[in-house]
């Protein structure tokens, strides 16, 4: 059984705006082959103000497809067409307090129906440019098409590359077999052979340090490296804090959205690389939880 939020269930059992709008002057029909869902959105638009006066949906689809359609009509009623076009599939999912990763495409279908209806109203032709593949990474809802394209465009050759570029496989790692299969297939297109055991050496060129730094200098450099990374983390509503430096071991604390994030390990690797570059020596960056117990007790 899917884990549907209360809101999804409520919109499925009591859908709003079901059925066609009688005086519709904009209609959008879309479907998703991935799941056989199809949706017709009909709108009554005020020709003067372009405000959506009424919206109705007809959906052939599962519980979340019906709930997403219902949510979409509620969100866009009263908006102008231009305002409505700013509604993203994430807005639809958020309105429903989230959707299971496998079901995010239902919200995508809602956004596409809206685009199709607006195009219909304006006498334009709407083309679906969104291709959907089999869901590979369930932690981050990444499908095969996105992974394939990213591998092709960036000439990726390892699972680690795919994790770094797409996030796919960066969580529970259960999909790594699937990712390896895609790598094998895409690399074969350009005559390459995927090497699963390829020793992917962390290609970090270690500059020779000019002179031995004092502890204070080292810590300042480490702080500088962290400051450089910080804006990237804050963009994802997270942050990092330096806890201790013990020889080659640097302990940091991930905070905000970074705390408990499934990508934390990948992020730590990135931080480590930056600090190594800054210091010109090899160090190991670890979460503060891994600090030896006695030190934590005293610290």
């Amino acid at each position: 059984m899917w884990e549907y939020s209360e809101k999804v269930q409520e919109h499925f059992f009591s859908p709003r705006n079901a059925g066609a709008v009688d005086e519709a002057n904009a209609v959008g029909d879309v479907g998703s082959l991935a799941c056989g869902d199809a949706l017709r959105l009909s709108l009554q638009v005020d020709p003067e103000t372009e405000v959506i006066l009424d919206a109705g949906f007809q959906t052939f689809g599962c519980g979340s497809a019906i709930a997403s359609s219902s949510a979409l009509t509620e969100i866009i009623k009263g908006k102008t067409l231009d305002e409505a076009l700013k509604v993203t599939n994430q807005d639809i999912a958020d309105y429903l307090d989230g959707l299971p990763p496998e079901k995010m495409h239902c919200s995508v279908m809602g956004r596409e129906a809206l685009q199709a209806a607006v195009a219909n109203y304006r006498g334009e032709e709407w083309k679906d440019d969104h291709e959907e593949g089999a869901l590979i990474c369930k932690c981050f809802a990444i499908d095969s098409v996105l992974i394939e394209e990213t591998i092709r465009n960036n000439k990726l050759t390892t699972v680690e590359d795919v994790v770094n570029f797409t996030k796919a496989g960066g969580g529970c790692s259960a999909c790594h077999e699937g990712v390896e299969e895609i790598l094998t297939r895409v690399m074969a297109e350009s005559g390459q052979t995927f090497q699963p055991s390829a020793p992917a050496p962390v290609a970090v060129a270690i500059p020779t340090p000019t002179a031995k730094m004092t502890s204070v200098q080292r810590i300042r450099k480490i702080e500088a490296a962290l400051d450089a990374i910080r804006p990237n983390l804050q963009r994802d509503h997270g942050d990092v804090e330096l806890i201790d430096v013990d020889g080659k071991n640097i302990y940091v604390k991930m905070t905000g959205a970074c705390a408990g994030c499934q990508m934390a390990a990948v992020t730590l690797e990135g931080i480590q690389e930056c600090i190594i570059n800054e210091l010109g020596e090899f160090v190991r960056v670890m979460p503060a939880e891994l600090m030896p117990r006695a030190e934590r007790a005293h610290g």
């Binding site: 029909d29 991935a34 199809a38 017709r40």
Partner: peptide
């Protein structure tokens, strides 16, 4: 099939 023939991805 004709009356409702949505654009498929």
């Amino acid at each position: 099939e004709k009356a409702f023939a949505p654009a498929y991805a």
